[in-house]
Computed example of a mutant assay.
Amino acid sequence: MFRHSMRAFLVSLCALTAASQAATAVALAVPADQRPATRTTARALHAQTLADLTTAMKGEAYAYATYSLFAAQADGQTRPADGKVAQQAQPAVGELFRTTAQTELNEHLREAAALAGVVGTNEANLRQAINGETYEHQVMYRGFAEQARKDGDLEAAKLFTEIASDEGRHRDAYRTALTVLTTGRGTIPAPPTANTVSVPAGMPKVKAARTEANLDTAMHGEALAHAKYMLYAARAMQTGNAALARLFEGTSGVELHEHFAGEAVLAGLVRTIKTDLRTAITGERTEATTLYPGFAKRASAVGDGAAARFFRDTAADEAKHAAAFQQALNQLS
């Protein structure tokens, strides 16, 4: 899987006890949706380990979302944005992207989330979601929209503004749900329905580097929100709160199929099948040789052995993914 963007490869859900003061200090220094988790299953993890696990989750969620789009492209389910004849379908490549995406989400991200203690009580999960949605509604997307307008990327400004409004509605629904849980009065809101966006292959539709960077940040945030909300939905269902599970699931779908997809169109995320494979290969190799080994080394140095093992095991998986993608590319060449 590949992380934040081609420009940032090298940069870098379940218990209820608080993490160390150091971890909390680090968490409060960044936006709510980007904060490392602060609940752990045994002793508190080191702040840097938590930060690395958060980076891992964000990257794995992004890979899942992106590989899912690459799979649709390879399956011949999407047409080029320029209206030209679509490429010949490559169902074997589509299946490779699809199965790899499932590994990133259902193995790697879930393991990282469990180590970081991302999932708590339904009330705690709602508070985390409210914090993230509030930040995106009030700060992030409004700021991105203003910057895009200044840079002449009006289509991006319009999309960012629309998503900001959506996130405000998500926040309000989560606030209502939290009130229902804490007071026992009222009804949990019905889940939103995603207006699914098709993502054709094509070049970026923005011109400013700043807009491209903001789209990348936004896509990573939406992908992570999708994954976390699905974990929160599972917790809600486990505790017998089907209405809350439906709310989380519905919102998760909006984040992925509407927000992430809409941003992917403007970013030109999906290209030709060969280009998609090359992009995946580069990312997987970087993670296998640089990113995850670095995380493992840091975790080992501070005694976070379980996290170190996770990082090493994930690095090995990513190397296998890179090899499989390379083989697929060779067969197309």
Rank of each mutant, 00 (worst) to 15 (best):
V11L: 11
S12I: 10
L13I: 09
A15D: 14
A18D: 15
A23W: 04
A23Y: 02
A25D: 15
V30A: 03
A32H: 04
Q34I: 03
Q34V: 03
T38I: 09
T40A: 13
H46T: 02
A47M: 06
Q48L: 11
A51G: 10
T54L: 13
K58Y: 10
Y62P: 08
F70G: 03
P80G: 06
A89H: 08
Q90W: 03
V93D: 00
L96R: 08
A101E: 09
Q102P: 06
Q128C: 07
N131R: 14
T134W: 06
Q138D: 14
A145R: 02
R149W: 02
A156W: 01
A156E: 01
A157P: 01
K158M: 03
A164R: 03
R169V: 09
H170G: 05
R171T: 01
R175Q: 15
L178K: 07
V180R: 07
P189G: 07
P191G: 08
V197R: 11
P200R: 11
K207D: 11
E212Y: 09
A218Y: 00
A225L: 08
K228S: 11
Q238V: 02
N241W: 04
A242P: 09
E255R: 06
A267F: 01
T272C: 05
K274A: 13
L277G: 04
T279F: 02
I281Q: 01
T282N: 00
T289D: 14
L291C: 06
Y292N: 10
G294V: 04
A296Y: 03
K297Y: 04
S300E: 15
Q326S: 11
A328I: 04
L329D: 01
L332Y: 02
